[in-house]
């Protein structure tokens, strides 16, 4: 496995006349937490769908876990994990059923599923809730479980699409500890968020504006480059260059 888990080279996607993603290029390292930021409609979701092998690029090239996203999209899908706040787990299944379902889809052996899921249920303190449907669990528990399920098959990269929206501040922090731990074990974390303080937890972040990556670097570098003290301000400088003047 090479050191770069994702390599993107002038990747573009057009929908008719509209260019949603405009020649973006970047790399992520193994075990890196990479924050993928941008305003609503900047092209984040389109880019993410291409990297997950769900959408064919119009031009450019990208490899994810060493596989080409256009010609080897099925292989890409096997090597990644995905979680979003909107959709992750089946609400009418129990925790253990959800784990088995996803692990099965990723082709894990029954024996491994059994062993690992027991350990996971213990770690998440869910043993007493083994027979409870997901819908009855508190949101924070569900999100931790959803993340654990997304990395259960030990993917090389996990894509997190606004994973912490709406959860309480304590759970949000627990969640980031899980992310940091998973990254330390070598999984690349590719994450979008609207919480600008969370951008600070990333090793590097990129900010997309109108289909292009307009800034890329460590949080410290970006703050220094824009001569501001928070990522929020960097974001505002880039996303609405005139917003500061009118206020």
């Amino acid at each position: 496995m090479p050191d770069n888990s994702i390599v993107v080279d002038r990747l573009s996607k057009k929908f008719g006349e509209f260019t949603a993603v405009n020649e973006i290029s970047f790399e992520t390292k193994k075990g890196e937490i990479f924050g993928f930021l941008g305003a609503n409609g900047a092209g984040k979701s389109t880019a993410m769908k291409m990297l997950c092998g769900l959408l064919t690029p119009t031009s450019g090239k990208a490899t994810v876990a060493g596989y080409d996203i256009a010609s080897q999209s099925e292989r890409v899908k096997r090597r990644i994990g995905y979680m979003s706040q909107k959709f992750s787990l089946y609400q009418d299944l129990t925790a253990i059923e959800n784990i088995r379902f996803y692990a099965g889809i990723y082709g894990m052996a029954d024996k491994d599923i059994k062993q690992q899921s027991d350990r996971l249920m213990q770690r998440l303190n869910l043993v007493d809730y083994a027979n409870v449907k997901i819908e009855a669990l508190p949101l924070g528990w569900k999100q931790k479980l959803a993340f654990s399920v997304a990395v259960f098959h030990r993917p090389e990269i996990v894509f997190l699409d606004e994973p912490t929206g709406g959860v309480d501040p304590v759970t949000r922090r627990d969640f980031w500890e899980m992310i940091t731990q998973t990254a330390a074990e070598g999984t690349t974390i590719f994450v979008t968020t609207h919480y600008m303080d969370e951008a600070e937890y990333c090793d590097r972040i990129s900010i997309m504006v109108d289909g292009k990556i307009e800034a890329l670097g460590t949080p410290e570098q970006l703050k220094t480059n824009f001569a501001v003290s928070t990522i929020d301000e960097v974001f505002i400088c880039l996303a609405r260059p005139d917003a500061n003047k009118t206020n």
């Binding site: 305003a39 609503n40 606004e162 709406g166 609207h194 600008m196 929020d232 505002i236 996303a239 917003a243």
Partner: peptide, 14 residues
Amino acid sequence: TTGVDPVSRREFWQ
């Protein structure tokens, strides 16, 4: 403002 990016959130409050 849920799910809205920081810049649009700021505009909404204005």
